[in-house]
Nucleic acid binder design. Structure first.
Length: 474
RNA sequence: GCUCCCUUCGUCUAGCGGUUAGGACGUCGCCCUCUCAAGGCUGAAACAGGGGUUCAAUUCCCCUAGGGAGCGCCA
């Protein structure tokens, strides 16, 4: 049976792929992969007003970047409107639905009245049993489901457990709008059914919709798929995730220098766990993923943990791979075009050589870019204020003497320059640090950098001596 | 207001009646050290509150409080 699993990710294209959607997609993807099934992608664009092409593009792009591929063609829900209409009509013919001629004013009044009386059943069934002959002129009717008035509707949710609603709290939802277009509620049910979806995994903001959809499934005589409603992701302060926090599109995470693998790992552990394991390769994630491991409470988004994970993935990435990522991310961050122009075979080789040292200190690709600054810097170096403070007359003189000491070094490697420097320090009765810091400033313009011997080796003899010369009194 | 969901260190979480309540991030201190990281070792840090059930509750039930979601001819 494991080969029959079909999951789906069904975003509405009204904005970018946000972090919560990304996690939902990931969970669906993992579940399908784990069971050798398929994950379908359906764009819920029945709201013609708010659906946009750029949003669709952003969603597809975001999923590709995250490495979440889907099976088959993307299904655009709006193209299936005819089928949705057909199903609504069949329900009408079967007496399981009816036309409702209520005006929006009447509806508003009903809602206010219901709320005032503390009821949840907002639509009072005004046209449920009324003769359509009484229909007013000029009103395009909606088609509403004739939902059960009593009894209960039960969802056996794989995450939330058994959730029960009293039917008197559920009203007759609209299946078809006055303009003949389907509502989300109808479209989802029909599409999931027609697409053969076996497992619905989505945010728990849909939990109540599951009950309403169950009523549609029942009216149609269809089986409802397995339901899993996963808790939402909140901002660091526990409130709803806003743009201020992490409700950024996944493209923003790319621009921030996060690796897809790191984001996947962070996301999978947000709301799901597998014992004490924190780091998961994609393979391990697929093998370990299960619905039982999903928690029921909302999780807060924590950038610090994401950064830590990202650092881990950077440290463990291949050097050549990182050079490629370094270049690729430049296209997604502002003000890096000058850096891009400086990429050539020489600087690429330097970058590759420096990578073992660079990646040890970077939590994001942005930090990686920043710490590689010394490779691309033009002479004379721009010196940070904090670093400039170290360029005292004494230290400048020291740099001059050091330059002289390094000049004869050959070949020029991290090992040989280190030996020369240690000898220089010993001879002067200085601690290595007393020499290394001024040297670092002269070479990088900063007080922090990769190991100074790595910097020496990467920059090469000529460039190093020139930079030292720049800081030596004439 | 109504319906539904949730509640273990600051954060993500393990726990599925009996544990010194574990791990991870962050944080504190120490070690390493040419800076910054990384790494190693330590420390502080949690079962929301109240009732039950039970020989025994973080674990099961109820209530309260707090948080969240939903209440559209949006999805």
């Amino acid at each position: 049976m494991t080969d029959s699993v079909v999951t789906r990710f069904a975003p509405s294209p009204t904005g970018f792929l946000h972090i919560g959607g990304a996690r939902t997609a990931l969970f669906n993807w993992l579940y399908a992969k784990k069971h050798g099934g398929r994950m379908l992608l359906r764009i819920e664009d029945t709201d013609r007003e708010r659906s946009t092409e750029p949003a669709i593009a952003a969603i597809l792009d975001g999923m590709k970047w995250l490495g979440l591929d889907w099976d088959g063609d993307v299904v655009y829900q709006f193209t299936r409107a005819g089928r949705h209409r057909e199903v609504a009509e069949s329900l009408l013919a079967a007496g399981k639905a009816y036309r409702c001629y209520a005006t929006s004013e009447e509806l508003t009044a009903m809602r206010e009245k219901a709320r005032a009386e503390g009821r949840t059943r907002l639509y009072d069934g005004l046209w449920r049993d009324r003769d359509p002959k009484q229909a007013p002129e000029g009103i395009k009717p909606t088609i509403r489901l004739k939902a059960p008035l009593s009894g209960e509707t039960v969802i056996e949710d794989q995450v939330q457990g058994r959730v029960v609603w009293q039917n008197e709290n559920l009203d007759d939802l609209v299946l078809l709008r006055g303009d003949g277009n389907p509502t989300y509620m109808l479209a989802v049910v029909v599409d999931d059914h027609d697409m053969g979806v076996t497992h619905v995994i989505r945010g728990d903001d849909h939990l109540i919709n599951a009950a309403r959809q169950k009523q549609i499934y029942d009216a149609l005589g269809w089986d409802i798929p397995s339901m899993s409603h996963i808790p939402l992701i909140h901002g660091p302060d526990g409130s709803k995730l806003s743009k201020r926090h992490g409700a950024l599109g996944v493209d923003a995470y790319r621009s921030l220098g996060y690796l897809p693998a790191a984001l996947r790992n962070y996301l999978v552990r947000l709301g799901w766990s597998h014992g004490d394991q924190e780091i998961f390769s994609t393979r391990e994630m697929i093998d370990a993923f299960d619905l039982q491991g999903i928690g029921r409470s909302a999780a807060r988004f924590d950038f610090a943990k994401l950064e830590n994970l990202n650092g881990h993935y950077i440290r463990h990435a291949g050097d050549a791979e990182l050079v490629t990522m370094f270049e690729d991310v430049l296209d997604h961050v502002p003000d890096r075009s000058s850096l891009k122009a400086k990429l050539n075979d020489t600087t690429r080789a330097q970058l590759l050589q420096a990578m073992p040292s660079l990646k040890e200190r970077a939590k994001t690709l942005i930090e990686l870019i920043d710490s590689a600054y010394f490779i691309f810097a033009d002479r004379p170096l721009e010196v940070e204020p904090k670093a400039a403070a170290l360029l005292t007359p004494e230290n400048r003189a020291l740099i001059g003497r050091l330059k002289a000491a390094l000049e004869p070094v050959s070949p020029w490697t991290a090992e040989t320059t280190e030996a020369a420097m240690r000898a220089f320090a010993d001879a002067g009765g200085l601690k290595l640090g007393a020499v290394a810091q001024p040297l670092r400033v002269a070479l990088t313009g900063r007080t922090t950098s990769p190991g100074i011997f790595d910097v020496l080796a990467v920059l090469g003899r000529e460039e190093c001596l020139a930079r030292l010369g720049d800081q030596t009194p004439a």
